[in-house]
Write a protein that binds this DNA or RNA. Structure first.
Lengths: 231, 231
DNA sequence: CGCGGCTTTGATGTTCATCAAGTAAAGTGG
DNA sequence: CCACTTTACTTGATGAACATCAAAGCCGCG
């Protein structure tokens, strides 16, 4: 983890993110003086569950996972966050401490803004407040819907669902490199690592997907969609 | 469902609710002219999944459930909402249509505020915006944590968990009347009705609880807590 | 009074986690 | 760069946990 200097390229970075479209250039200036960037390598912990919340963090580049840890290494992944996802959006306004951990799945750069400063901005700029509400609403909503969807599927349905998710929502391509390990997939959709592997193998044998290590290609999308919906 | 007249007892109702503590008396006045109340009897639908979101709704009195419906009557309850819970808090700022249904578990009165008016208030009143953010954050957070907690427990653990939840969080009493049917408990914690009944019976036989229809009394709280945490 | 929904219990079968054991890959220190 | 250790991946066998099916009693409601 390294702290970088604050050359103010915020404009580009932040403006690209919808949430900040209502922040004026002047207000943006004050961000640049208070924000900082940090880099994390794959595997490093960005936020430790239980740590006090003093800052607002978002992913500028890379990929992170939000997860809860409980005894003996049994983790549960709440969600994955990509650039411009606001990883501390969940508890940030309601809690004093993080209820989950965040760590980098790929090399990641995050931007960090002081929470007090962010709150000031909410108070001063009503449109920004609305943007933030909308963003937060969407984030929470997606997570909840995800839990709901996954809970009513059997294991084959879950694997189908997550594969379609990667292809259609994240990579926009039926062929992609899995960013996560089999173990992490298991933690993401609530099953064991062995069964993730088993079912991926089944899908391969059935000609639904092609696998080469972390590389996945969807061969029979119709069938995968059917499985996702009906299993 | 009846529409009531708008005698402005908002002050009492709304002020009691933390979220509105930063709304001035003047602003409160404009609420009274725009808000309305509706009554629903047990079992009636307050919000139908898919309906357009045009208003902000909260429970003034009673108890409702938020749930998603999927084919052939297999529902999943997302959460229960009691007075001053903001039932349309989730999708309200991010979606145009409700992603879930809401119906009354007990006779319920809801207050309804025009969404446009609410957004104006967010824009005008920064402290109110922060309150709303906090409230929303907490709501979403609780739901997510709940899913997380429940997912890692086996069936006995889930029943223990939900019973403790009723006793400690909702009724503040080790003896209470179950507001929900066995079927609804099942939908709330992701198991079948039969197994809810079976495990409640087991707990009764094991002397952990006493049951009389909908009335539950926790007899051995220590054991229930142990089950909730270790099963 | 009868019908439909809720509740209860038992029997059965499927799904899934766990255990075990081995291979492959990736990081680590000399 | 190679031996070494650790972590990820894979497959099979087993049993436990849980859903499903079936049948019957109960209760409220029209």
């Amino acid at each position: 983890m390294q702290i970088q200097n604050n050359t103010c390229e915020c404009k580009e970075c932040i403006v690209r993110s919808l949430i900040f479209e209502h922040v004026s250039t002047m207000e943006l200036g004050t961000f640049c003086t208070t924000k900082r960037e940090e880099n994390y390598r794959k595997g490093q912990v960005v936020i430790q569950q239980g740590a006090p919340i003093t800052e607002f963090i978002y992913v500028k580049d890379g990929l992170v996972k939000l997860y809860t840890q409980s005894g003996q290494g049994r983790n549960q992944i709440i969600s994955l966050a990509r650039p411009y996802d606001f990883i501390s959006l969940l508890t940030i306004f309601s809690d004093k401490h993080y209820q989950y951990s965040v760590s980098a799945i790929e090399d990641t750069t995050v931007c960090i803004i002081d929470l007090v400063r962010l709150k000031e901005l909410v108070r001063e700029n009503g449109n920004f407040a609305l943007d933030l509400l909308e963003r937060m609403s969407r984030t929470a909503d997606n997570i909840i819907r995800n839990y709901n969807d996954i809970n009513r599927k059997n294991l084959r349905g879950r694997i189908a669902y997550i594969l379609l998710n990667f292809a259609d929502t994240i990579y926009l391509n039926d062929r992609f490199e899995l960013p996560v390990s089999r173990k992490e997939i298991a933690e993401l959709i609530g099953m064991t690592t062995e069964n993730v592997i088993r079912i991926l193998s089944e899908f391969r044998k059935e000609g639904i997907i092609r696998i080469n290590g972390k590389e996945i290609e969807i061969a029979d999308k119709t069938k995968l969609q059917f499985l996702s919906e009906h299993a």
